[in-house]
Design a protein around this nucleic acid. Structure first.
Length: 271
DNA sequence: AATCTTTCCTGCCGGC
DNA sequence: TGCCGGCAGGAAAGAT
C-alpha cells in the first residue's frame, strides 16, 4: 500500500545506491504489470549512467542522459537494493543491475505497478501531464483548495483524493487529514469555507510530513531488509479503527463506504 | 466470498 | 444540439 510517504522514503533509500552508477543489465522476469514493461529496456539502458532520481506524485523517476525510467509501485510494489546474485522470489518481476555489484529489484505481487520509458520532457508524459500540485509544495494551500473546490459537489474526501486537484493523498491520509481538520468526509467540497480549506490543506501537509519522518526512522535500513515490514504499524487516529474509541473524545469510530472505499471518522470530532 | 489497495478509463449527467 | 466539467462505477491481481 505505498502511499506518498512510503514512495518518498523508498526514493530516499535507493537514491544514493543509484546516482552516478552504471546499468550493466536489465532483467525482466514478468513484463505483465499494469502496462507491459518495454522489452527493449536492456538495449536502452545498457551502459547508461543514472543521473538523478525524483518523485512526482507516487511515481519514481530515474533520469538518464537520453530519457527517464518511470516507476510506479501500484498497490503492492516495493523496491529493494540487493547484492547481485540474490535469488529472486515469486513476485520479483524486474531488476536494474549496477556495475558495483548491487541491483535494484522491483517486487509487486498484485502487478498494478508500472515500469515505463519516456524520452524528452518527463512532465509531459501522458501519466504526469495532467497531475495537480504536490501536496508538500507551496502552491498547494488553502486558497488553492478553496478556489478549485467551488464547482465541486462531490464529497470532500473524494475530492482531495483526486490527483487532478492534488496528488499523493491516498485513502489512509485522506481519512487522517480530515480527522485532524475536524471535517466530515461526506461534506460537499464546495461547502467548505476558506478557513476550513486552509486548515485542511495544512493538515494534509502535516500528516504526510509526519509519516515521511516516521518512515525515515523506521525504515532506515529498508533497502537491505524485508521491505515494508513495520512501516504501516504507525498508529492512526481513525484509519482502520472501526468501533474503537476516538483517541480524542472516546466516541466509537464510524466506518462508511464512499466511492468503493472505506471511510473512517469520528461523529463527535468531525462536523 | 468479500475485502483491500491505486488510478485510469468509460459512460452518463446537468449546465450553458 | 453540442460541448464540457464533473462524477460514479468498473477494471486489473493476489493475499487474507
Amino acid at each position: 500500500m505505498p502511499e506518498l510517504p512510503e514512495v518518498e522514503t523508498t526514493l530516499r533509500g535507493i537514491t544514493p545506491h543509484l546516482v552516478d552508477h552504471q546499468i550493466v543489465a536489465v532483467v525482466i522476469r514478468n513484463p505483465k504489470l499494469r502496462w507491459p514493461i518495454p522489452n527493449n529496456l536492456d538495449a536502452l539502458l545498457h551502459g547508461q549512467v543514472v543521473r538523478g532520481l525524483q518523485r512526482r506524485a507516487k511515481y519514481i523517476l530515474i533520469t538518464f542522459d537520453h530519457g527517464t525510467l518511470i516507476l510506479h509501485l501500484g498497490m503492492s510494489g516495493s523496491l529493494r537494493i540487493l547484492p547481485v546474485g540474490t535469488l529472486p522470489q515469486k513476485h520479483d518481476h524486474f531488476d536494474l543491475v549496477l556495475e558495483d555489484g548491487e541491483l535494484l529489484r522491483l517486487r509487486d505481487p498484485r502487478r498494478f505497478g508500472a515500469v515505463l520509458w519516456h524520452t524528452g520532457e518527463v512532465a509531459q508524459h501522458p501519466l504526469l501531464a495532467a497531475l495537480g500540485p504536490e501536496p508538500l509544495q507551496q502552491d498547494f494551500d488553502g486558497e488553492y483548495l478553496h478556489r478549485t473546490t467551488r464547482t465541486r459537489s462531490a464529497v470532500i474526501k473524494q475530492v482531495i483524493m483526486d490527483s487532478h486537484l492534488v496528488v499523493g493523498v491516498g485513502n489512509i491520509y485522506a481519512n487522517e487529514a480530515l480527522f485532524r481538520a475536524k471535517i466530515r468526509p461526506q461534506l460537499a467540497a464546495h461547502k467548505l469555507s476558506l478557513p476550513r480549506c486552509q486548515k485542511l490543506a495544512q493538515c494534509i501537509k502535516e500528516v504526510l510530513l509526519e509519516a515521511i519522518e516516521q518512515g525515515g526512522s523506521t525504515l532506515r535500513d529498508f533497502v537491505h531488509s524485508d521491505g515494508s515490514s513495520g512501516y504501516f504499524q504507525q498508529s492512526y487516529f481513525v484509519y482502520g479503527r472501526t468501533g474503537k474509541p476516538c483517541r480524542v473524545c472516546g466516541t466509537p469510530i464510524k466506518q462508511v463506504r464512499q466511492g468503493q472505499r472505506s471511510t473512517f471518522y469520528c461523529l463527535q470530532c468531525q462536523k
